[in-house]
Computed example of a mutant assay.
Amino acid sequence: MRCVGTVVRGIRTPIIKENDDLATIVVDSLMNAKEAEGFEFNDKDIVAITEAVVGISEGNYVTVDDVAEDLTKKFPSKDIGVVNPILSRNRFSIILKGIARAMDKITLLSSFPADEVGNGILDEDTLEKSEYNLGSVISEVEYAETFGSWIHPFTGINMVDFYRELIESEDCEVEFVFSNDVKTILDYTKDVLTCDIHTRFKTTKLLESLGANVYGLHQVLTEPIDGSGCNPDYGLLGSNKATEEKLKLFPKTGDTLVREVQKRLIEKTGKQIEVMVYGDGAFKDPVGKIWELADPVVSPAHTDGLIGYPNEIKLKYVSDNKFADLKGDELKEAIKEEIRCKDENLTGQMITEGTTPRVLTDLIGSLCDLTSGSGDKGTPVIFIQGYFDNLADD
């Protein structure tokens, strides 16, 4: 009888640099791990590769000057509104530097009390005691008087101060406005760069309908600037700080990579192994209140076997209801038979209540992100076995 279900391994690889043959590195690292750890490959195993090394290997970088040049073309007035940027030094500071380098003035509209993914911009207890509410429009002066001393407990900085200093260092004027209604920006300018991630299409469509000249970050650097990198699907969304003058973009060759890795693994192992590229996991930290998904999607590329949703019954529900009078081996065998006979599509049935109705790649990507971490583990490849197994698989 099997005593272990899903197994997740972080696979160490060489340090990956621009122009490296990533498919070869991934496959060779898996084969080396197999020999060292003594595992075997099975059908429906999963290999996941972090988007960071995909972007690095394909050399998908842009500079601050590239960002500035693209925005100068889009906003010749040099006076724009920047709406709902993420409050992140890693994710947005270099983008903001490029915006400021291209413009004479920025009106930066931020949501409050936090950005789209939960990064705080003011103290919520102070907000509750103040004259302001979530429907208020708060000026820069009002923010400074009421909330300006707030320091984020994780980063130890005030992001308003940080962004102001960064913008002014590029000889650009800045005015901050705090509002949860994006239409507020139209009181200041009709030229708008929207920076939200998961509501980007709704925001740009709304502002366009009100007469704005609007672009989203997903529409910046969709084509190369003088040989630079680009991302035709996501533009600057999903980018990360590489240096003080350079951004690594979200990968654009993931589809080719996952199919090449799958092909080579089938040739070497004879098993149908699924492959995906993953970025941020789609989960929320319960303490910091930060939603991890700052990338536009969890998985920008994956093989066909990872399309879809889980189709699982809730063991607790079956045990407590249908088989409430059974115990021990008899209960286990009854549940196994229930699993074997389950419908191919359980959507909407009570027997699934309490399971997680999220797409497979979001669930698997979250598992991978938590395994690889964001620091110094050195395991940009994750190998998962038994994810699609259930209690009935002996």
Rank of each mutant, 00 (worst) to 15 (best):
R2K: 12
G5C: 00
V7N: 04
I11H: 08
E18P: 04
V26H: 06
V27G: 02
D28P: 00
N42G: 04
N42C: 07
V62H: 08
A68Y: 12
E69K: 15
K73C: 00
V83N: 07
S88Y: 09
S93T: 01
K105R: 15
T107S: 05
L122G: 02
Y132T: 02
N133S: 13
G135M: 13
I138W: 10
E140V: 08
F154K: 15
G156H: 11
F162G: 00
Y163E: 10
L166N: 06
E173Y: 08
N180W: 07
K183H: 05
K190Q: 12
D191K: 06
V192E: 01
R200W: 02
T204N: 08
K205L: 06
L217M: 10
I225R: 12
G229V: 02
P232V: 00
S239Q: 06
N240A: 08
E244W: 05
E245P: 00
L249M: 14
T253Y: 09
T253I: 03
R259K: 14
D285E: 12
P286M: 00
L293F: 01
H302N: 14
T303Q: 09
L306C: 07
P310M: 13
N311T: 06
V318R: 03
D320F: 06
N321A: 01
D325P: 00
G328A: 10
A334T: 07
R340G: 01
E344A: 00
G348H: 12
Q349P: 00
E353K: 14
D369K: 05
